[in-house]
Write a protein that binds this DNA or RNA. Sequence first.
DNA 1: CTTAGGG
DNA 2: CCCTAAG
Length: 602
Amino acid sequence: METVVEVEGNDEAKLKECGIRNSTSSLSSPKQISDPVVYKLVRLEGDGRIVPATDDELMEVESLLIDDKCEMHIYADPGQTVGCISNEGSSSGIAQLESLEGLLQSRNKEADPDKLNARLEETVPSLAPSLSESHFNQSGSFGECSHSSDKLVAGGSTLSVVTTKPDFSKLKGEICLDNLSIKELHETFKATFGRETTVKDKQWLKRRISMGLTNSCDVSVTSFIIKDNKLVKKGNGEISNCMDGSYAEDPPIGNQKDLPTSLVSQLDYHQVVPEKRLENPNLDDNSGSDDHQTEQRAAKRARKPTKRYIEELSEVESKESNGRLMNLAKNSGHGLISLKSHVRLVRNVPLGGRTVVTRLDSLGGYGIQVPCVSRVRRSRPRKNFMALLKFNPSGMGMEATVKKALGDHSFPPDDGKESRVLKASSTPEHVHHQFIGVPEKDKQFSVMSAIGLGHNTELKCINSSRDSDDNVVTVPTPKGGIRRKHHRAWTLSEVMKLVEGVSRYGAGRWSEIKRLAFASYSYRTSVDLKDKWRNLLKASLAPQDNGMNSRKSTGAMPIPAPILLKVRELAEMQAQVLPNLSSTKIAGSTRKNVHEKQTGFL
DNA sequence: CTTAGGG
DNA sequence: CCCTAAG
């Protein structure tokens, strides 16, 4: 029932975080404390007083975490963290990470942890029952356990452990964004996320990109390397040395369950993420700089997350909360702390006249409530339904009409399509079972091992759950265009994976590729892969309009030339090999073909 | 169910 | 991306 966030340093220093019911505003009373669902971070003053942390302090903490804690190989994404916990600035304060600062400071000052604890419980006896701890393993064995995460489910009924193992070695030398210019970074960013950014901060861009790439759990799976804004085959050219490989080697995969759960910073609290309803288009549109500002924490913080921000947050966060550590493709030697803040939002509270809706989302396998904003629950469309009905009273044709008109997905469960949708939109339970069952894991792993990819841990992929719950019909594109909301833009990494898959299994074996390379992408069907490949082919054959003009006008993700080249290569190869020698290549791998060949011979 | 191709 | 035909 109690979400425990424990921080543990080498010196055993511990910092307590106090759970405080964040009921609208008042500080916790003993009664409220009894409700362990909500926790609030507070600052532990030198004299033992507990003071609600302010947002600014929070920022500072993150700053500390990011800039100073070099030994840490996890990092906290300020933007995301803040996005999660920042609030209207209600006096009650929301969960704060402030306590971390206390920890760090106390560590440095060699504060006696016991003393701290004691003081805490003396000074605030009423809080004692709900004290939570953050457990931070700052020791060198980080790579080993820092990544694991578990979840104490509120209610105490369930204790699901979802652990993911980080594979740092995988990242080593595979991504080098350091040499890229801002412009290049922008391109890469767009290629990675499918949208543009106006952020000019290199660090931010690099981090974001590397995050996007690695989080898609694939870059490492492919044989591509990103270097100098180019995707190159591994082996081509020097491997970048962005990653110093200072992290611990990965222990053999397979025993995730046994991994200690040290870095678990679960912050549960009732909280409402206010929807920033800006009338000012400048602010609202400029998501990039919004992120930037937030992440930069130096700028005027305390901004309520914008719609777009929240959207992005939920997307990125969903990836990040796999428990996977992000390694930054940055030369700065210091590692960072991954502060995974899982926020439980359980209320819909009117703010400024607007009601903010939250929904339970599955992030990283946890049931997490995230702000809905434009991500309305994927359900039957009501808006146009009647209108369509009206115009199409015939009944029979109506369904088709509606489906077509709305891109469906959301029609009645009886529709066969629905199963797919349901499957995609994983409820916490679903996710949970998926992870626990892990039927695919062993299989996948063994397969990958057999192929020689064993070193590329796939486990993380298993764990990656996406909130596949976009259902709004369309969404405006940074470019001004619109695209279907539930269309998932192909990320660069996905494309790379696809290419890799095709090269390995051959075009046409979509289901294979799907199973092996896209096991974790529940939302990509084999058909999707096929379609994408088709598009890639088309793109690869088309004149490589490498000007920004095309990109600008299209608003589409620019596919790096190297990939297109690869695509063409593969296409030619397969076009040549397949028709002529028929099934020479296939024959070897396909029993059926062999058989046919033999029988035909006889 | 998977693949292929048109919309 | 969606839908359908065909193996």
